[in-house]
Design a protein around this nucleic acid. Structure first.
Lengths: 345, 345
DNA sequence: CTGTTAGCGCATTCAT
DNA sequence: ATGAATGCGCTAACAG
């Protein structure tokens, strides 16, 4: 049998389709009896409104498009969760496109051709499905300026940056400053840093935070303590070894991601340096394994949920023509576990 | 300015809307010149078809609804990735609902009221947005029979079961049988098992696989070697200690998840038992940390991508009125790393 | 308080 | 090879 529509309800309840519409949407006062009658028929016929027809009519879909570079990359699901959190509260729906970047072109960002094509396609599709705005979720914080054209629809970036566009990204500088503050408050003075690749924005920002803390708290600045890794475990391992072989060893290392921190722990283990008694380690990311490490790794947790939530909030405001008021650089949060202790006196 | 529609194209190109429709969809032959002219105007006006209007007309949306109990739970994103893989290849779109189960009601499954309400709501919403079918992704393999009513639309469950409904779930029994086979092929005869809670379907199935292998390969059956954990790290730790204190120690342990395996490794470390020389460990899940563990954990990898992909495939077939032909219990894959070695002779 | 009616943007039948 | 006209299911004037 045909799908039941308002017309069927109207017929069976002896009213006009308009009235049915009114009782469903509460758009106008309807006499309680009629209302009751209509409701009963709706119930009986198990009627569900066709939102697509409604959308066509009112020119609003309450749907927002999300383009994720890759949903399987750690951190991304939590951002999506934040998006859904806001969406639920505001009766918005999510059309999700997953570009599957890693599986498709691997880490080869240079294949910009394919890449831009995918993104452009995704946006066009979303837009033709009448998404009222788009959120673009990167796969790690980098500049994606000029990648996308939302054809005049509102757009918000998160977990990546775009010039002249609204983007929500956690505050890297403050995060590493806060981490340093914690280390210093524990009594550390000789604090090394293992940074990520220096062509990355987060690396630069975090280094700024490190340097700012060094300066403000008047710690000795030792260039030997500054090491540049490549985000991989092996580099954390190697650089930590180097740091521990220094004549004037640091008592703590701030490490820009948990993976390199895992390498650091391995190096320390091999060299008989115990954490946190002989060396304190502070990571970034709160990766799943950091809670299973031995000792459990103290790390900076990223405000992922908040990023998604704020991005949605900002987008909604943009859609309504308002000025976005959301915090564009939410703060990371120190997760105190067991890899930091006061230095040996 | 108003959004540009077919009418605008038609006017500017001096043709009827019908013709515009024909050139866009290639539904009928159009004189090359006219065709050309229309295309040019489309280009100029930057026209994008309104898929929502089209859907209303043709009564097909090419949209499928996905209900995830919680997208932030490990394993789920990879399933979603499989769904997108199929969707991309078949020009299908995904409307994703995230019930956010953990954040909302925690692990308290007993709050079935809220829970069913959420699910029912999600389905209704998806359906009223004209999703042509629904995929339900659980948060771990359990029976969810009777949770949802798709009102006659096709529905496929994955990462959970539902009686009398189509569900795609990896083959647990085969997985643990394969794991055992590997252990045995490495020369182990005294193989213990640390199972998950016995009220769980996977636990039962995996135990079946264990027992089947024991029987088929005529290994001694030692009830002492069977331990029941609760999936948590602590239980893996505790049970491994007990196993290692046995007079007749096992030389290998099959552990039903990586988290308990992490506990096992900790126990072994404390007792001075080295892995894999003195004890082999084989986990389940391929959790992120298992690759960072020391030694790297050999584990069974779940066919998550395939589950998502197959679920989509089956759903598509159902939508088309065909018999689903997808493999409903894809196989797990052994991921050989460093925690298994031949027993000491 | 309720009914009639005109579209929303498009695909499609029936003419020509 | 093309156009005119109809309607998908719904909302929102407008009219009573």
């Amino acid at each position: 049998m045909r799908r039941v529509g308002m017309k069927d309800i109207a017929a069976k309840a002896n009213v006009s389709v308009a009235t049915v519409s009114y009782v469903i949407n509460g758009t106008r006062n309807v006499k309680p009896q009629t209302r009751e009658r209509v409701m009963k028929v709706i119930e009986e016929l198990n009627y569900t409104p066709n939102e697509i027809a409604k959308s066509l009519k009112i020119k609003r879909t309450n749907t927002i498009g999300v383009i994720a570079e890759d949903v399987t990359v750690f951190n991304v699901p939590e951002i999506i969760d934040g998006i859904h959190d806001y969406a639920d509260q505001h009766d918005l729906h999510i059309l999700l496109t997953n570009m599957r970047l890693f599986k498709r072109i691997g880490h080869n960002y240079s294949d910009m051709e394919t890449y831009r094509h995918l993104a452009e396609n995704a946006a066009t599709n979303l837009l033709s499905r009448q998404a009222e705005g788009i959120i673009y979720i990167g796969v790690h914080p980098r500049d994606v300026t000029g990648l996308l054209d939302a054809k005049g629809k509102p757009m918000v970036y998160t977990y990546c940056y775009a010039q002249h566009e609204l983007s929500i990204q956690y505050n890297d500088e403050q995060a590493s400053y806060d981490a340093m503050h914690y280390l210093i408050s524990m009594g550390h003075k000789k604090i090394a840093i293992i940074s990520g690749l220096m062509d990355s924005l987060p690396s630069r920002h975090r280094f700024n935070g490190y340097y700012k803390a060094i300066t403000e708290f008047e710690l000795p600045f030792n260039p030997q303590y500054i090491r540049v890794g490549d985000w991989g475990l092996q580099s954390g391992y190697q650089l930590t070894k180097e740091l521990l072989e220094l004549e004037d060893r640091p008592t703590a290392i701030l490490i820009m991601n948990d993976v390199m921190a895992a390498g650091a722990m391995r190096a320390a283990l091999e060299m008989g340096v115990s954490i946190p008694q002989d060396l304190s380690i502070l990571g970034f990311d709160n990766r799943e394994f950091s809670d299973f490490a031995n000792p459990r790794l103290t790390t900076m947790e990223l405000p992922l949920h908040e990023m998604g939530y704020n991005a949605m909030e900002a987008l909604s405001q943009l859609i309504k023509g308002e000025q976005p008021t959301s915090d564009r650089s939410p703060l990371c949060k120190l997760l105190v576990r067991d890899s930091v202790a006061p230095p040996r006196s």
